[in-house]
Design a protein around this nucleic acid. Structure first.
Length: 527
RNA sequence: GCGGGCGUAGCUCAGUGGUAGAGCGACACGUUGCCAACGUGUAGGUCGAGGGUUCAAGCCCCUUCGCCCGCUCCA
């Protein structure tokens, strides 16, 4: 178990049988997650982390950082047979608004939508087409709306042809409102479409003390663009060579239409993103490399078994600029038997750098001196290009939620019927030290061992000690908080310097020497 | 944004017009030698918020906020 790359030693039950209500209760009760602004009635789509939740989230972010930036891919070599390089970055939440025009977010976030009152369907206004008679005026007859490439197209065409004979299609936005004779794509009756409405999915704000709409800026909807716009800076100032990556964690904001499912879809959330830059000819190799390693990584911190899947996107699911994308998805109790996205690994081509080069006018090309024709002296002349990008983009809060759901275990046969099977590396509480009873010199020994463990492991997580109440109650409390190991000082400790170690998952105990406690823990926590 | 359900103590919930409760949890003291043991005691709620009806509202009515579920959305 000293190898951090091995999956959790305790495979979990499927999440399908776990109750989200139970998990949410435990999260509140033990201080993992609170509703934001709770005493004022809360605020839709925002959540605060309590002490244990903060530690859990921090441990997950830290594990990512260590394995992505400090010791990239556990020291594994990339497809070029060289060690992987990822440079750290920390960019602003607020950037020049042109960043979001270049990235396509301003356009994409400002689409007007129309709703159908009958089917409660919602459609992008500019995507809705209508079958009208080829001859022109439909008279009093209804016309048939559809969305291209969806089942509604064939269905509506059939109905339209039955009504009019020969038909042609026009965009909905060419017809005058109100659309009283338009039958919505999946509706039966005409006139059910609402007027188009704007959904602004980016939060905006106005920097500057004097409020002026002309200065409008946005809270970033993803951390990725901060990386792209600093690509040239990083290349120019770090003696770094393609292929390499830039990694960043940080908050992002999306005005989700419907925040839902506890913290899964929040309006303020944190991302962990890598933009990995490489030559086009190597891009698919790097894509496969990142996709497979990221999957292994999630397994290494305890998300294993059937609850985690890698899903390759079908061709028609890809964004227009993407040549391949896959999702790492977790089976949450609220998605079961389906899955919810934890991380997307996208091959984005050089779309983003191209966009920023175009919009900013800055030259973002990389001069690759290892490529190109050979000069007379035998050295390559170099090749200038916009690197292609592999983007492994993970949701930190979603990761935390998946860890909580995966760890949550119900076992009515146990004294602690609800407990959290966190992998030791991400467990908020790493260990606890208890005197079996609060007398006969045991508290003093416990205090000493606790201090010792604090000195050795206090920087990796919480080390608890507690002398109150029955030992069973203290074990149960630690189970519920997900503490993997409890060390107990008993009568025997005083005579032969041994303690018992209780394993959270099995409840089993073994006896080890006092001076073996530190090595024991070291072998099981992040080595 | 639509439809449904639900908001009472930290958690789970009872209370259906007449003095706000229980279990668990927390805390204190005692007891206790390995799995939420036992005893005694303590703290904690303007019943999500606002308005209305009534002599009287946790309860009835209206509005609003939040959470859950189903649609929808998820670049």
């Amino acid at each position: 178990m000293s190898d951090p790359h091995t999956p959790s030693p305790t495979p979990q039950a499927p999440t399908a049988g776990k109750s989200m209500d139970d998990i949410m209760s435990l999260c509140k009760r033990r201080g993992f997650i609170y509703q934001a602004s709770e005493i004022y009635g809360g605020i839709n789509g925002f959540w605060d982390y309590g002490p244990l939740g903060t530690m859990l989230k921090r441990n997950l972010r830290e594990a990512w950082w260590q394995d992505v930036v400090m010791l990239p891919c556990w020291g594994r070599k990339g497809p070029d047979a060289e060690p992987v390089t990822n440079l750290p970055l920390d960019t602003c939440i607020i950037q020049n608004p042109k960043v979001w025009e270049a990235s396509g977010h301003v356009g994409g976030f400002n689409d007007p939508m129309v709703d159908c009152r009958e089917t409660r369907g919602r459609y992008r206004y500019d995507h809705v087409m209508v079958f009208v008679p080829a001859s022109g005026d439909p008279g009093d007859k209804p016309v048939f709306a559809y969305v291209g490439d969806q089942p509604s197209e064939a269905k509506q065409r059939k109905k339209a042809e039955k009504t009019f004979g020969e038909v042609r299609s026009v965009a909905l936005n060419t017809l005058p409102q109100p659309w009283t004779r338009v039958i919505a794509p999946d509706a039966e009756k005409p006139g059910t479409l609402t007027e188009p409405r704007m959904f602004n999915l980016m939060f905006d704000t106005i920097p500057g003390a004097i409020r002026d709409e002309a200065n409008k800026a946005y809270l970033r909807p993803e951390t990725a663009q901060g990386i792209f716009i600093n690509f040239k800076n990083v290349v120019d100032t770090n003696r770094v060579k393609v292929p390499f990556g830039i990694a960043q964690t940080g908050k992002a904001f999306r005005n989700e239409v419907t925040p839902r499912n506890f913290t899964f879809r929040s309006r303020e959330f944190e991302q962990m993103e890598i933009e990995f830059f490489c030559h086009e000819s190597q891009a698919m190799d790097w894509y496969a490399f990142w996709r497979d390693w990221r999957m292994e990584w999630w397994k290494s911190i305890g998300l294993g078994g059937d609850n985690l899947i890698l899903r390759e996107h079908a061709a028609d699911e890809l964004a227009h600029y993407s040549k391949a994308t896959s999702d790492i998805e977790y089976r949450f109790p609220f998605t079961a038997p389906g899955f919810g996205e934890l991380e997307g690994i996208a091959y984005r081509g050089n779309f983003d750098l191209t966009q920023h080069q175009k919009h900013s006018g800055a030259k973002l090309e990389y001069n690759d001196t290892t490529r190109g024709e050979l000069a007379p002296n035998g050295q390559p002349k170099g090749e200038r290009y916009l690197p292609h990008v592999i983007e492994p983009s993970a949701g930190l809060d979603r990761g935390v939620l998946a860890l909580l759901c995966e760890a949550y275990t119900k076992d009515a046969a146990r004294a602690s019927p609800e407990f959290m099977k966190f992998h030791p590396r991400i467990a908020p509480i790493k260990a606890a030290v208890f005197p079996l009873v609060n007398k006969d010199g045991m508290p003093e020994v416990a205090e000493k061992l606790h201090a010792d463990l604090m000195k050795n492991f206090g920087r990796t997580g919480l080390i608890e000690t507690d002398a109150k109440q029955s030992i069973g109650k203290r074990y149960a409390r630690m189970d519920e908080a997900g503490c993997p190991f409890c060390f107990t000082i008993d009568g025997e400790t005083l005579s032969n310097h041994t303690v018992t170690v209780r394993d959270r998952d099995s409840g089993g105990q073994e006896r080890i020497a006092m001076d073996q406690v530190v090595p024991f823990l070291r072998a099981r926590l992040n080595p």
